[in-house]
Nucleic acid binder design. Structure first.
Length: 433
DNA sequence: GGGAATGATTTCGA
DNA sequence: TCGAAATCATTCCC
């Protein structure tokens, strides 16, 4: 038995017995004179119900005629409203639970992500955080800015497609909803369709369309994720630092060999000079320390090279200071470097050179050219007589870069500062750490 | 193409 | 949180 027949039977069964339908609604009093007594009313309603029940058995023309007659029947409005109410109540009891849909967590996640990535919501800055982070991580070179703008362009493309599609869906949804509403309103003249039912139907349509929208959002999110991962993966695509950057880092490393732990400030400065990030500087020093320690012999040549370089720089600085000293009052030569960063006094460098001859460095030899630079430097310094032979004696630069454990001595007390043999007036001023 | 070099990441301990 | 150590992944060089 279909729903309509059941409802009609309910209607007939309940109302004909003279009781109100569930919910307390009674059949309104008949409009005409005829319904004044209960039997006449029962007869009337029974008649109508019979006609409705048998309408499908009749030919199309007959049925049409009967329908028209029923529509014009004086009892029609009353019956219709009762049918609407019954349908409403049964419908609500069935669908009531579905009405209060909690917000879909998946949809919320998608919405949040699209918002965060700048695909939905205001356009400005969309996804720039990810791009900027990746750009910063990979050094912020011009290549990266190109990649950055590429990322932005692609994100804008995704955004445009998303909004176009969303608009299409919304338009289609509105059109379809209007169409269905008109249809239902039209039909409500011939069958019991309450406004609530229309609302419900609209809700169903919207839910269907929102599920399509969810698919769109999901695909958009996937596209963004792919784009983002591709962009961020560039971070892993290692690029060697420029030669200049490596030189700067090496210079710092070998001139601070006693304590190759740059402070935050030093790291920042090095990062700036090398056009890399602070964390890249940290990585570089981490790698350098471990690799140097693992294979000191292999780095010997490099150490000598940078020591020589620093010696020359220091010699120039001292020579300049000497000249200055000759023309002006005596001054204490500082660690002042003409290098690109606050090159510490060559103290560590010389310590390195001494160290190279020490136990820790397995008796390796300092290059002759370096030695000659040192000699020159020492000579110049002696000539000035401005300060102790800090660079000269072994007393100051003992081979204690690496401790017995194979590690550098306590980073907080670099040898350059705490060396017990370091006399007052030493030129050693490696305090950058 | 293979090995060395090198920057990045992961794991672990202090 | 930082650094050591191991390892991965990529680039460089022969």
């Amino acid at each position: 038995m279909d729903e309509q027949s059941r409802m009609l039977q309910t209607l007939a069964g309940v109302n004909l017995a003279g009781h109100s339908v569930q919910g307390g609604m009674a059949l309104p009093p008949p409009h005409g004179h005829e319904g004044a007594d209960g039997d006449g009313r029962k007869q009337d309603i029974g008649d109508i119900l019979h006609q409705i029940m048998t309408i499908t058995d009749q030919s199309l023309d007959e049925a049409q005629a009967k329908k028209h007659a029923l529509n014009c029947h004086r009892m029609k409005p009353a019956l219709f409203s009762v049918l609407c109410e019954i349908k409403e109540k049964t419908g609500l009891s069935i669908r009531g639970a579905q009405e209060e849909d909690p917000p879909d967590p998946q949809l919320m996640r998608l919405d949040n992500m699209l918002l965060a990535e700048g695909v939905s919501g205001p356009e400005k800055g969309g996804g720039s955080a990810a791009a900027a982070a990746a750009a910063a991580a990979s050094g912020g070179s011009s290549d990266n800015s190109i990649e950055h703008s590429d990322y932005r362009a692609k994100l804008t493309q995704i955004r445009q497609i998303y909004h176009t599609e969303l608009e299409k869906y919304e338009q289609a949804c509105n059109e379809f909803t209007t169409h269905v509403m008109n249809l239902l309103r039209e039909q409500s003249r011939t069958r019991p369709i309450s406004p609530k039912e229309i609302e419900r139907m609209v809700g169903i349509i919207h839910r269907k369309f929102s599920s399509i929208q969810m698919q769109l959002k999901q695909s958009t999110c996937e596209a963004v994720m792919i784009l983002r991962s591709r962009f961020l993966d560039a971070r892993r695509k290692r690029r060697n630092f420029s030669k200049q950057a490596t030189e700067i880092l090496n210079e710092y490393f070998y001139s601070h060999l006693s304590n190759p732990y740059p402070s935050e400030e030093a790291k920042e400065e090095l990062a700036k000079k090398c056009s890399i990030t602070v964390s890249q500087v940290s990585n570089w020093f981490g790698n350098k320390r471990i690799r140097y320690k693992k294979n000191i012999g292999k780095f010997q040549e490099e150490a000598n090279l940078y020591a020589a370089k620093t010696a020359v720089t220091a010699a120039h600085a001292v020579a300049a200071a000497v000249q200055n000293n000759q023309t002006n009052s005596p001054t204490t030569p500082n660690s002042g470097s003409s290098g690109s960063f606050n090159l510490p006094n060559s103290g560590d460098m010389f310590m390195n050179m001494q160290s190279l001859n020490g136990d820790s460095y397995q008796g390796s030899q300092v290059g002759a050219n370096v030695q000659s630079q040192v000699d020159t430097l020492r000579h110049v310094i002696n000539q000035t007589g401005g300060y102790n032979d800090g660079l000269g004696g072994n007393s100051l630069y003992s081979p204690h870069n690496l401790n017995a454990n194979g590690g550098w001595q306590d980073a907080t007390t670099p040898s350059s500062v705490t060396s017990p043999t370091e006399g007052p007036g030493s030129v050693h001023s490696d305090t950058s750490n």
